[in-house]
């Protein structure tokens, strides 16, 4: 009985963790290649969910096509944001770019609310409410789909960044954009590519999040948790972001089932699951200030 409960907790933790990992992935990718800490990552995720909701629920378009539309439009939004705003801000002080991303975040929330309203909606997905029964265990199909698709995406990313010329060039640009330019790489194009991929994964995460809960403008707070996942992983490697995301998701899941609503001598823990993720992040950063996989920059002159 206890075993099944733990498997269940880990399962739901993994499906949330996969979402955090996807958002964190985009976060690290944009940060590494353009040097911009994108506080609007969660908002990109929300926009993806709303576009999917618009096609699937409001326009009654087949679900797969809605997802593809949401991903494509989300990626285009990322490219647009780079061309309109951040292309001019590369290399500017980090406090300036951070404030711009925070501003962008609230603009995205306002625009989304303006178009689709500020209420809570649910997405018309074929997975919702459906489960798979394996022995005594019951798994939600939406969560299962999240985990499977995320694993496929992670593998695709690892292959892209280690095998393809474009992926390797993007890694090179992230490390040293001046030298990348000297090798014939169009650095501006690479920055746009980073934004496109970053927004794309955020959009995918948004759709999964919408499937597991609801569509509303407040869902963008996932971005902050994903950011803690990225920092936990070290802000360096994509692998770090993925593992950071999974840790945050699983910890949150355990906290939600064992600690939430607990009462101890008149003190209420309340909804402690949001705190747990950050507590873990603080703990890890106290021991390893550069994150689990981060490293101090060693410069050889």
């Amino acid at each position: 009985m206890i075993m099944e409960k733990i498997i269940d907790i880990i399962f739901s933790g993994l499906s949330m963790g996969a979402i955090y990992a996807l958002v964190a992935l985009g976060f690290v990718l944009i940060f590494k290649s353009t040097g911009i800490l994108n506080f609007a990552q969660g908002e990109l995720c929300m926009v993806g969910a709303f576009i999917c909701y618009y096609f699937a629920t409001l326009l009654n378009v087949p679900y797969l096509i809605s997802i593809l539309m949401a991903i494509a439009l989300g990626a285009m939004l990322g490219a647009l944001i780079d061309v309109l705003i951040f292309r001019r801000l590369v290399g500017e002080p980090i406090y300036a770019t951070i404030m711009v991303t925070i501003g962008l975040a609230s603009i995205l929330v306002a625009l989304t609310g303006l178009i689709w309203g500020h209420d809570t909606y649910s997405i018309r997905s074929p997975f919702i409410g459906k489960t798979i029964v394996a022995g005594k265990m019951v798994f939600a199909q939406a969560s299962l789909a999240t985990i499977v698709v995320s694993i496929v995406l992670f593998i695709l990313f690892i292959v892209f960044f280690n095998r393809s010329l474009l992926g390797v060039a993007l890694k090179g640009t992230a490390e040293d954009s001046d030298t990348a330019g000297l090798m014939g790489i169009n650095v501006k194009k690479m920055h746009m590519l980073a934004w496109t991929i970053g927004a794309l994964v955020a959009g995918v995460a948004g759709i999964f999040l919408a499937e597991q809960s609801f569509v509303h403008t407040g869902m963008s707070h996932t971005g902050i948790k994903a950011m803690s996942a990225a920092i936990l992983g070290g802000m360096e490697s994509l692998g770090g972001a993925i593992i950071g995301g999974i840790i945050v998701g699983v910890v949150e899941s355990f906290a939600a089932s064992y600690l939430s609503g607990l009462e101890m001598g008149g003190f209420h823990f309340g909804d402690i699951k949001d705190v747990a993720a950050f507590a873990i992040m603080i703990l890890v950063l106290m021991i390893r200030p550069h994150g689990i996989f981060g490293k101090k920059e060693v410069e050889r002159v």
């Binding site: 280690n162 060039a169 890694k171 090179g172 090798m183």
Partner: peptide, 13 residues
């Protein structure tokens, strides 16, 4: 590119 392998450095070259 210190964080990339030699093969990847040549690929970018």
């Amino acid at each position: 590119f210190a964080e990339l392998t030699i093969a990847e450095n040549l690929m970018i070259g």
